[in-house]
Design a protein around this nucleic acid. Structure first.
Lengths: 180, 180
DNA sequence: AGCTTAACGCGAAGAAATTGCTTTTTATGG
DNA sequence: CCATAAAAAGCAATTTCTTCGCGTTAAGCT
């Protein structure tokens, strides 16, 4: 592996080309030759590095799913969770959000990219949990929060076009915190 | 749409070809022309009917994910749920199971096939619930069961290569039933 | 039975994927 | 600091897949 120099430039310009073309022509119009041309690279370079279009899109999708800020402090564990999951739901259930999730899941035989998505959520929840513990609040484990809050939401988004409103997500938070 | 006659035969032979070739050469070796030849059909027929390989694989995957029997009666709601989710987890977390889930999810812009997967689980849970209600047991709603039992399991399978053992799934059942 | 038209077959044209070979460039060790 | 081994990218030819127009077949309907 060569992390720097030309390789880095190629990766960057290819990723940028994907983002640009996605915005310009829509995701379904993306092809490897098209991306390669825009990035100033030959198609074989992309095929050799990423394998196929799906894996490339998967990489780009994971980057876009990375949270850009720490979860906001609302003063209490419950409020922090409610605010975070509400925003999370909004992003993920949108048309683009769903597409990114699916892309991240698909082009990824080794499950690595999907795991990174879950790690992002876990990191955010951990930050919320640490802050709450600092306040002296009782905090469920991250696993429990993933199971009770993130998983039901993602299941709905992926499998069932159904309610993902704040009313619903807040209910998930309540169920997670009010458990015996 | 023409459900019968030649169309039905084509669909059947194409689906059969997918299953056969999948077993013979592995899923990654599948291509539209290969499937078409095996099915005794021209490639353009497949492209016209299914659009692309992903949608075809999605259709086949959903069929294979359809439960083949009603959930077994273990004498109580808790035991029924435990037995059902345990078997469900075993099937879904296997290598083939995960592949089918991903295929069903991916080749499906309209979300129809993914929804059918969820419907299968909902049907099974409903059957268990109706039986338990007949015994006079208190039964959570299907939505609650999906959120509390199915969703966490599927999230783990899709996003995090982690524990999906009976110990874990039975814990999900306990959490679902012991909720206030 | 006859009619309409959805669905399939065929073949050509165009686009994308794969691969061997060459060239460039990075990282390392003298 | 240069030499060198090897990784990564470029190039081009080949193979394979995809799309599309047009003719043919056969469901479904009256």
């Amino acid at each position: 592996m060569r992390p720097g120099g030309r390789s880095a430039r190629v990766q960057q310009s290819v990723h940028q080309a994907v983002r640009d073309l996605e915005a310009e022509r829509g995701r379904d119009a993306l092809t490897v030759p098209l991306i390669a041309t825009r990035a100033g690279v030959t198609p074989s370079t992309i095929y050799r590095r990423w394998g196929d279009l799906r894996e490339l899109l998967s990489d780009v999708a994971v980057e876009r799913l990375r949270p850009d800020a720490a979860p906001a402090d609302q003063g209490s564990l419950r409020a922090d969770l409610e605010a975070w999951i509400e925003q999370f739901a909004e992003e993920m259930s949108s048309s683009v959000g769903r597409t990114y999730i699916r892309d991240a899941l698909l082009g990824d035989p080794e499950q690595g990219n999907a795991a990174r998505c879950s790690d992002y959520a876990a990191e955010q929840l951990t930050a919320i949990g640490v802050r709450a513990a600092g306040r002296g609040e009782a905090v469920p484990g991250v696993e429990a929060l993933l199971d009770a809050i993130v998983a039901p939401l993602m299941y709905r988004i992926l499998f069932r076009p159904s309610d993902t409103s704040a009313a619903y997500t807040h209910g998930l938070v309540a169920a997670a915190l009010d458990r015996r």
